[in-house]
Write a protein that binds this DNA or RNA. Structure first.
Length: 701
DNA sequence: GAGCACTGC
């Protein structure tokens, strides 16, 4: 058994951090001396990880502090090792579970199987994981459990105090996703009720301070362990070194006007002047990237001698699986691979063999405007934290270089330290219904890690009120509110699903909901647009996109869920498999809520009515005498158009409801369905009033 | 006739 600190023995040495107030440990023991009589490879590897030097310190701090913040760059081994240290330190005794969350499903699965391997146990027994659609744990046996933070949130609905956990580690907290932030806010509340619960928050360097100050109790609540029993409330911070190689940072001398051209010439310069090694270029989106790939190929052609030496590959989520796989294939001998990527390579995917990074300094970010209730995707400057993360991608295999397409002066003086948390850039409807379901009544006064704007919160409350999910006192209605909260869908879609039960078309609405939950069921093929449009016509329904989805689903089932059939019809097979999974999960939830599975057998009208019952706020009517298909939203009289990808594009029916808006030079409605305007008053009499034939208005509230 | 950074339940 390896050495670790035990309560009651002499404690490790602690020193005050010069930044004030926080505990900081430095190692006193000669770390990995052989306390093993024999050591297999895995155990030796474990001890070589940088985090091993902090093993005793981490166990000591977790014992004595309610919250421990572990600061460390990638490669420290904290994710795989800390849960094992806790297990070795006795935190999974008497049926308790050590939980560790990750923001992404793939990370949950790979970390869990790695830890199971290191412990020599079968995955799903002592070490398990839970992600949506997959529970690989054995209750009563599983001691270390990896899960997405979204799953942890769902668990709180059944067990608000998370009573089976003794320690919960929130990994990658610096990414500040919506669910991480909600989890952090709720865990802080749980700690007041369960002082014995220990939290470990893992974060990258820059963000650690704001997270520490969030967990630092306000002065009047602060109590030391000297007077009372139990852990200190003051969060401890321990830092763990990373394992990355040094990355030399280069800045551009003068600001550039066109980062695309600058990126291309920088790549060519690296190729001419620097030794072998692949190059990763960060641009913003598909357009930029495709243009960049083309420019680079032209440059390589014209520069003659390097012709054929460059292998230029695009990388973004919209690519097919096969196209994405190209990026991971080994670089052919004598070639230099250049990957031009979106933010996907910043956190979600890890590329091996990258030695040079070119950072444009921009990414596409979502911003939400509560007044128009629209989420926009805009190209915006990245933060210092992102810039560091991008640079770090160059130092995974050997020392690397990062070329920033902005000046050092800009980096130092103008770039913000941290990005804006997702919570402050998003529509909050789903977030707020979850908090309500967890019994958080005072939304405005909730202890948010970063509070969203009051306007955004009020807008979300209004939407939930109009859906009949919240009552006049802003409490969840029964049963609708509780049911909508239980269904893992956007609340408007959940409401439509509930309505479909009354209208007798729940089978159809389950399918539609599942399809709307995946990115797109169509294959995006550049250069084969015409064939895609023709394929779509085979399924197109006059009533709109939602009914078209039903036709696709039916065809897919009739084909025997065939991938060949999908390929032939320009349908994304992987997306359809996800539709099946999602539909199955929704079906189970729906049945638990007492929804009766029933098909309306091609009575399309009730399906459209059910959709309207959820999406009535998105009703639009065609402008009379409009020759360009201009619609106005009923609620705010904004100009909107049917998106060219919709089967109703250029059909322009008089009345429609849309599922979502995308905003570019115009506002486009994606996924629209035709409605009869009288339904609006029928399904939402509190929201609309009838003003004579063909005229509906929102009620002023 | 246009264009979807990335996750998650």
């Amino acid at each position: 058994m390896a050495k670790f600190w035990k309560p009651g023995t002499e404690k490790p040495r602690l020193v005050e951090d010069e930044d004030g107030g926080v505990l900081f440990f430095y190692s006193t023991s000669s770390s990995s001396s052989s306390s093993f009589g024999y050591a297999n490879n895995l155990q030796q590897q474990r001890q070589r990880l940088p985090v091993f030097k902090r093993r005793d310190a981490i166990l000591f701090l977790v014992e004595n502090h309610a919250t421990t913040i572990v600061v460390g760059e990638t490669g420290s081994g904290k994710t795989t090792q800390i849960p094992q240290y806790l297990n070795e330190g006795g935190w999974a005794e008497s049926g308790h579970v050590i939980g560790c969350t990750q923001p992404r499903r793939l990370a949950v699965q790979s970390v869990a199987s790695r830890v199971a391997e290191e412990m020599g146990v079968k995955l799903g027994e002592e070490v398990g994981y839970v992600i949506r659609f997959e529970d690989v744990t054995t209750p009563g046996v599983t001691r270390i459990k990896f899960l997405t933070d979204g799953v942890l949130l769902r668990e709180m609905m059944d067990d608000p105090l998370l009573s089976k956990y003794s320690v919960i580690m929130i990994d990658e907290a610096h990414e500040r996703s919506i669910s991480t932030d909600i989890v952090l806010g709720l865990l802080k509340k749980i700690q007041r009720r369960r002082p014995e619960l220990r939290l470990i928050i893992s974060s990258a360097t820059i963000e650690a301070k704001s997270i520490a100050s969030f967990f630092r109790a306000s002065k009047k609540h602060r109590g030391g362990a000297t007077k009372e029993l139990g852990p200190k409330t003051e969060p401890a911070i321990v830092s763990v070194e990373g394992r990355g190689f040094t990355v030399e940072i280069n800045y551009i001398q003068e600001p550039v006007a066109d980062y695309l051209r600058a990126a291309v010439s920088t790549v060519m310069l690296i190729h001419k002047q620097q030794t072998v090694g692949d190059i990763l270029v960060f641009l913003t989106g598909q357009d930029d990237i495709d243009a960049g790939v083309q420019l680079l190929n032209e440059e390589a052609q014209s520069s003659g001698k390097s012709n054929g030496e460059l292998l230029v590959l695009p990388l973004y989520s919209g690519l097919s699986r096969a196209e994405q796989d190209l990026v991971f294939s080994p670089t052919p001998r004598g070639k230099r691979k250049i990957i031009i990527s979106t933010n996907i390579a910043e956190t979600s995917l890890t590329l091996e063999g990258i030695v040079y990074v070119v950072d444009s300094g921009f990414s596409k970010q979502r911003f939400y405007d509560p007044l128009s209730d629209i989420e926009n995707l805009v190209v915006a400057p990245i933060s210092k934290a992102s810039a560091r993360q991008r640079a770090g991608r160059a130092g995974r295999v050997r020392p690397g270089k990062c070329f920033r397409l902005y000046t050092e002066e800009y980096y130092v003086n103008e770039m913000s330290a941290e990005g804006i948390p997702e919570m402050q850039r998003s529509n909050l409807v789903s977030c707020i219904i979850q908090l309500k379901a967890l019994g958080i009544d005072n939304i405005l006064g909730f202890g948010w890690p970063s509070s969203p704007s009051p306007e955004a919160m009020i807008r979300a409350l209004e939407v939930l009120y109009s859906l009949g999910v919240l009552d006049d006192d802003a409490k969840l209605t029964s049963p609708t509110g509780f049911q909508v909260a239980e269904i893992p869908l956007d609340p408007m879609l959940s409401k439509a699903l509930l309505a479909s039960n009354e209208l007798g078309c729940s089978e159809e609405m389950l399918t539609i909901s599942a399809v709307l939950s995946v990115q797109s069921i169509w294959i995006s093929v550049r250069g084969a647009q015409k064939q895609l449009d023709e394929a779509k016509l085979r399924f197109a329904a006059a009533e709109g996109d939602h009914v078209t989805f039903l036709n696709v689903y039916k065809g897919f089932l009739e084909s025997g869920k065939s991938s060949k059939w999908c390929h032939k019809n320009f349908i994304n097979y992987h997306a359809m498999k996800k539709v099946l999974e999602t539909r199955e999960q929704l079906k189970k939830t729906a049945q638990r809520l007492g929804i009766v599975l029933k098909s309306c057998d091609r009575d399309i009208q009730v399906i459209r009515k059910a959709i309207t019952a959820g999406f009535f706020a998105n009703a639009c009517h065609l402008e009379p005498y409009s020759h360009e298909g201009k619609y106005k939203t009923v609620r705010t009289s904004q100009d909107v158009y049917i998106h060219p990808s919709s089967v109703l594009f250029r059909v322009n029916p008089k009345w429609v409801v849309y599922h979502s808006l995308v905003s570019t030079d115009r506002r486009y409605m994606r996924n629209v369905v035709t409605i009869d305007p009288t339904w609006l008053v029928e399904v939402a009499p509190h929201y609309y009033q009838y003003q004579g034939p063909g005229s509906i208005a929102t009620l002023t509230r």
